[in-house]
Simulated assay, not measured.
Amino acid sequence: GAQRHAGDAQRTTVVTLSGGYHGDTVGAMSMGFIRAMHRPFEPLTFRCARTQAPDPRRVQGLGEPGLWPSWDEQRMRAARDRALDALAQLLEERAGRVAAFVVEPVVQGAAGMLVQPQGYLHEAAAMVREAGGLVVADEVATGFARTGALFACQLEEVRPDILCLAKGLSGGYLPIAATLATEAIAGAFEGEPHEGRTLYHGHTYTGNALACAASLASLELLERRRLVERGARHSERIRAALFEALAEHPHIGDVRNRGVMTGIELVASRDPWTPFAPAVAAAPRVCDEARRRGLFVRPIGDVVVFNPAPAMDEATLERCLGILIDAICAVDFTRPATDALAATPAGAAD
Results as ranks from 00 to 15, higher is better:
residue 60 Q to G: 12
residue 212 C to R: 12
residue 272 P to E: 01
residue 261 M to L: 14
residue 307 N to R: 10
residue 101 F to M: 13
residue 74 Q to I: 08
residue 179 T to D: 11
residue 64 E to V: 14
residue 349 A to Y: 11
residue 218 S to N: 13
residue 276 F to D: 07
residue 276 F to E: 07
residue 346 A to W: 10
residue 274 T to C: 10
residue 156 E to L: 05
residue 268 A to Q: 14
residue 112 G to P: 11
residue 133 G to M: 03
residue 36 A to D: 15
residue 243 F to P: 00
residue 38 H to W: 12
residue 336 P to V: 11
residue 11 R to D: 08
residue 95 A to I: 04
residue 112 G to L: 09
residue 212 C to I: 15
residue 279 A to L: 14
residue 180 L to Q: 01
residue 218 S to A: 15
residue 142 T to A: 08
residue 80 R to S: 10
residue 69 P to L: 03
residue 28 A to K: 10
residue 89 Q to I: 12
residue 102 V to P: 01
residue 333 F to G: 06
residue 315 A to R: 15
residue 297 V to T: 13
residue 243 F to N: 13
residue 66 G to Y: 07
residue 113 M to I: 14
residue 285 R to C: 07
residue 48 C to L: 04
residue 345 P to L: 07
residue 180 L to I: 05
residue 268 A to M: 10
residue 98 V to F: 01
residue 37 M to G: 04
residue 240 A to K: 13
residue 291 R to D: 09
residue 34 I to R: 15
residue 187 G to E: 03
residue 131 A to P: 09
residue 99 A to G: 06
residue 226 R to I: 05
residue 155 L to Q: 14
residue 290 A to G: 00
residue 169 L to N: 05
residue 333 F to A: 05
residue 244 E to S: 14
residue 124 A to N: 04
residue 229 E to D: 12
residue 329 C to W: 02
residue 283 A to Y: 05
residue 199 L to T: 03
residue 254 D to Y: 00
residue 18 S to H: 13
residue 29 M to R: 15
residue 165 L to N: 01
residue 191 G to I: 07
residue 187 G to A: 02
residue 92 E to K: 14
residue 142 T to V: 08
residue 256 R to F: 03
residue 69 P to T: 01
residue 231 G to S: 11
residue 325 I to V: 11
residue 125 A to G: 09
residue 21 Y to C: 09
residue 170 S to M: 00
residue 305 V to F: 06
residue 122 H to K: 12
residue 15 V to L: 04
residue 339 D to E: 15
residue 273 W to T: 02
residue 166 A to R: 00
residue 27 G to I: 05
residue 322 G to W: 00
residue 173 Y to T: 12
residue 220 E to I: 03
residue 222 L to G: 06
residue 320 C to P: 00
residue 18 S to M: 12
residue 37 M to Y: 13
residue 336 P to C: 08
residue 341 L to E: 14
residue 325 I to T: 01
residue 59 V to H: 05
residue 38 H to N: 13
residue 63 G to I: 03
residue 197 R to Q: 07
residue 83 A to L: 06
residue 150 L to M: 12
residue 35 R to G: 11
residue 264 I to N: 04
residue 213 A to E: 15
residue 254 D to W: 02
residue 86 A to E: 12
residue 282 A to M: 08
residue 320 C to H: 10
residue 287 C to M: 08
residue 218 S to K: 07
residue 250 P to C: 04
residue 181 A to P: 02
residue 87 L to W: 04
residue 140 V to S: 09
residue 280 V to L: 05
residue 133 G to K: 03
residue 41 F to I: 06
residue 202 G to V: 10
